[in-house]
Design a binder for these strands. Structure first.
Lengths: 117, 117
DNA sequence: TTTAGTACTTGACATTACATAGTACTATGT
DNA sequence: ACATAGTACTATGTAATGTCAAGTACTAAA
């Protein structure tokens, strides 16, 4: 079990839905990553469980957004690396756009509401 | 069925999880509202379904975050108005804080990522 | 009288995060 | 040699919540 990163927020599970998938793809986009590493990276942003990230990786691989390959490690069992496919990049782009729009829309409402207080 | 508001974004269902509940409570906070009205109001912010809002209202009422009363209408069947309780206000405050933190955390990551492109 | 708009309800379904447990390998300290 | 901690992946059952679809029912206008 990974220890909880300090300063990381524990929030409503529901808020994470869909966003974790996007975060994982954005992290893998820059360079290939293995699962355990991804759990650590995402944990720096949002409090998250191992048992949450691995299923996401499996799902995105099944849907051909990721390709995988194994590499031996000196620090434990072999690591499964994830690589973002062309299809994955499209998916990432789409999700990022949708998240941005959604977020802007909600933020705009929150700001207008603040003004009326 | 309500027609879709113009300019409203259709996004990943998952992004909405939890946020709709917060939006509903924020709208009701200012003044009591009835269900159909809430569907219209939330629809201005995010594309949403009647069958999504009504169950939220029912759930929040069961959990004592809302109190309800009926009022006749000249434009159709009686309207069920929702009023935010003290408990509801606490819940709202908590959710708003969590959403804000979560959002800041994700936004920060997105901005840092942008800088490294 | 038919249609559109208003207003609420409900049940089956899909998606996704979490908890928990299990497998298995390496490195370190005793 | 053995226990322990850290690394790394897999599988399974559960909970929460949004969507779809269908249904009920009232009012007003064509």
């Amino acid at each position: 079990m990974l220890p909880l990163s300090r300063g990381v927020i524990i929030i409503n599970t529901q808020f994470k839905k869909g966003v974790l998938e996007l975060l994982v793809m954005l992290i893998v986009e820059n360079e290939d990553r293995y699962g355990y590493e991804l759990v650590e990276e995402v944990s720096k942003i949002v409090d998250v469980n191992e048992g949450t990230i691995y299923p996401i990786l499996k799902r995105l691989t099944n849907e051909n957004y990721f390709e995988t390959y194994l590499k031996e490690s000196t620090e434990g069992p072999p690591r499964k690396y994830y690589h973002l496919t062309i299809l994955g990049k499209e998916r990432k782009e789409k999700l990022l756009n949708e998240w941005t729009k959604f977020n802007q829309s909600v933020s705009k409402f929150l700001k207008e509401r603040e003004r009326n207080e």
